[in-house]
Amino acid sequence: MEKVIAALWAPAGESRADFGGRLLQSLPAALAGAGASGIRLNLRDAVVADADALVQQWQAPQQDAVVQFWLPSANARFRGEIDALLGRASARFAAWLVCESTIIANTAHPAQAGQRTPGWSQASFISFRADMTRAAAVAHWHGHHTRVAIETQTNFEYVQNLIVHPLTDDAPAYDAFVEECFPLEAMVDPAVFFDAIGNPAKFEANLAAMNDSCAGFIDFSRIDVLPTSQFDFSPATQSA
């Protein structure tokens, strides 16, 4: 099995809300019918509007939604129906083959099939620093930053996806996709985000540690960070 992540852009004239609603109603079932499994939608809807200040942007226009899923093979020879579905559902899509690592599984607020997962999901498309080798960036990310991200935040789900290679010709040149779920309050309260409610000293320490660690491997001029609502359609949640 291979995991695919696709960024989706809304057609001109269709609001982000209408685009997300349409995807939610039709895309997961269509992808499942074409052989995809473990389907997850990340939508930029009204629930996460309060997190707009946390958006970081490289692409213009920026992605309006993300869909994640697994295929028996992501080889283009077997992906025709999937690509056609994504193309019909959006004005543009870009897709990548990724290697997934679940750092923190969501056991605190388990997803229910087809329902919005509690809290909110920060979906981050990141690029590594140009002055580092890929091996050095991955070593910092996995060997140092992972610990920092666990210890300094209130993330109750944390999934790292290392991009193996793009699957579409015009896919932005990202190196990784990261999804982290937080309590709703973390959208507007940095002390909640950095697990430091009522403790200014801890907040400053956690913020500094996170900023320093991110600067150690991320090119901030080539990232897109999106606040999203997560909708999971995976078999694991369907059988719960």
Rank of each mutant, 00 (worst) to 15 (best):
W9E: 05
A10R: 15
P11Q: 12
P11W: 03
G13V: 09
A17Q: 13
F19H: 10
R22G: 03
R22W: 02
L23W: 01
S26C: 06
L27N: 03
P28R: 02
A29G: 13
L31S: 11
S37I: 10
I39S: 00
R40V: 15
R40Y: 01
N42I: 10
A46D: 13
V47F: 06
V47W: 04
V48P: 05
V48D: 05
A49S: 15
D50Q: 10
L54P: 08
Q57M: 11
W58H: 15
Q62T: 14
Q62N: 14
Q63T: 15
D64S: 01
V67N: 04
L71F: 02
N75C: 11
A76F: 00
G80Y: 04
G80F: 03
E81H: 14
A84I: 07
G87T: 13
A89W: 06
S90P: 14
A94G: 10
W96Q: 07
L97Y: 01
C99T: 13
T102G: 09
T102D: 14
I103G: 04
N106C: 08
A108F: 01
P110E: 05
P110W: 06
A111M: 09
G114N: 09
T117S: 08
W120I: 03
S121G: 07
Q122I: 09
F125L: 07
S127D: 03
S127A: 11
S127T: 15
R129E: 00
D131F: 05
T133E: 00
T133V: 02
A135R: 09
A137E: 00
V138K: 10
H144C: 07
E151Q: 14
T152M: 03
Y158H: 14
Q160D: 08
L167K: 01
T168C: 04
D170H: 05
A171W: 05
A173C: 11
Y174W: 14
E179K: 11
E180H: 00
C181I: 07
P183A: 00
P183C: 03
L184Y: 02
L184A: 15
L184F: 05
M187V: 14
M187G: 08
D189H: 05
P190Q: 04
V192N: 04
F193N: 01
D195H: 13
D195C: 13
A196E: 03
P200D: 07
A201Y: 01
N206A: 01
L207M: 08
A208T: 15
A209Y: 05
N211C: 12
D212W: 07
S213Q: 02
C214S: 09
A215G: 15
G216A: 12
I218W: 03
I218F: 06
V225M: 10
L226Y: 05
T228C: 13
D232N: 12
D232P: 06
F233I: 11
